[in-house]
Design a protein around this nucleic acid. Sequence first.
DNA 1: GTCAATCTTCTTGTATACAAGAATGAATTC
DNA 2: GAATTCATTCTTGTATACAAGAAGATTGAC
Lengths: 223, 223
Amino acid sequence: MAENIVQGLRDEIENGIVTNQYLPGERLDEAQLAKRFGVSRTPVREALMQLSAIGLIEIRARRGAVVIDPAPHRIYEMFEVMAELEGMAGSLAARRHTDTDRVELLAAHSKCERSADAEDSDTYYYDNELFHKAIYAASHSGFLIEQCSALHRRLRPYRRLQLRVRNRMKTSFNEHAAIVGAILSGEADSARTLLRQHIAIQGDRFSDLVATLAQRGADQQER
Amino acid sequence: MAENIVQGLRDEIENGIVTNQYLPGERLDEAQLAKRFGVSRTPVREALMQLSAIGLIEIRARRGAVVIDPAPHRIYEMFEVMAELEGMAGSLAARRHTDTDRVELLAAHSKCERSADAEDSDTYYYDNELFHKAIYAASHSGFLIEQCSALHRRLRPYRRLQLRVRNRMKTSFNEHAAIVGAILSGEADSARTLLRQHIAIQGDRFSDLVATLAQRGADQQER
DNA sequence: GTCAATCTTCTTGTATACAAGAATGAATTC
DNA sequence: GAATTCATTCTTGTATACAAGAAGATTGAC
């Protein structure tokens, strides 16, 4: 939490939210957070406002900040948009990638292969992130890179859930292989479609997961 | 500037920026703004941070806030992304629009027709905004609506420049007509393509404009 | 006993005071 | 005369104090 206190606080609290340390619906008390991190309320407030801008918390006037509990369909919508943006990035990458981009993309792809083979979902999760970042970078659209990165980050907690699903890692890696092929051979439309599906699937999986949990919840209620 | 001081300040300063009252590169002094609006530095700081989050200004550590002067190619990139997102909205709207959506869309379209006929570019500018909002709404994707609205807002100052171009209003209206047709007849792909082009053209026009201005600048230099 | 109203307390919103770093200008030295 | 360094000043970043509104508890009335 060195250089910039506000940034540090923001990351810290954001982390707490995505790791469910602060639960959805929970109220975030400024004074409490300030005491906890050994700073005054001022930087805490600023950090909270930033989180509010990102959409992780909601600040209601004079009633404090609460952790947002996004409705499942909202998360699904976010995956839909992500799919579209990633498709766009893939399409641009196919047309614009340089030699450096190719090297980076292949390197990230190899890393994914290793972690997928090792069935190491934590490492795969990280390498997968690098892979997608490499595609963003190859699009050579600064604004698109920013938008994709922001959304990617925001969906992080939900994506993480999914690698636990059986065989998802291997399937994901195979999809990556097709995507790499399309991009490096300059097939823009194909790259777009493949990437769009690659992401959209995650939204579907998320919905399945929610449906399952909801069913379980209903079962519990019945007893 | 009633209810929420920070919100009011944000809007006020944002307005100042998009109307070139504060010029790109200009430094925004907290104390000065506080004095000007008759409040303390605290809410001014918070407003500035929000503007920074939107991307209108840049806050450099201990060196204050300056109005961002986005490079033309960055604005072009923003139009590219906007084109993609609007295309997506159009595609969803074609598949999901309700009777209410149809009524709203046609109403907005008629308004555009009237202001285009009247060659009233200020009114057209506003009606055009309603038209696009109607499409967003018809997509029935809350997150997409948010994203589109945010980007639309951010591109507002650059869009405004373009209606001055000869015949742009009439051309724009004709494009709208085709878009409405595609959406209401449920042709998702067509709606996507038409909308994408409709927006992309604005990016192109912007580039043309920049090129012209740059050329003029160069001519001035020569003298 | 329950409901409503008022008062108290707690939390947020704003102002101000204080600290620390960056920029600018002046002075000294080469 | 120019450049570099040091000091002063100005601005941002943080803390704290104060004000205002909301939530909750207590008391009184029905």
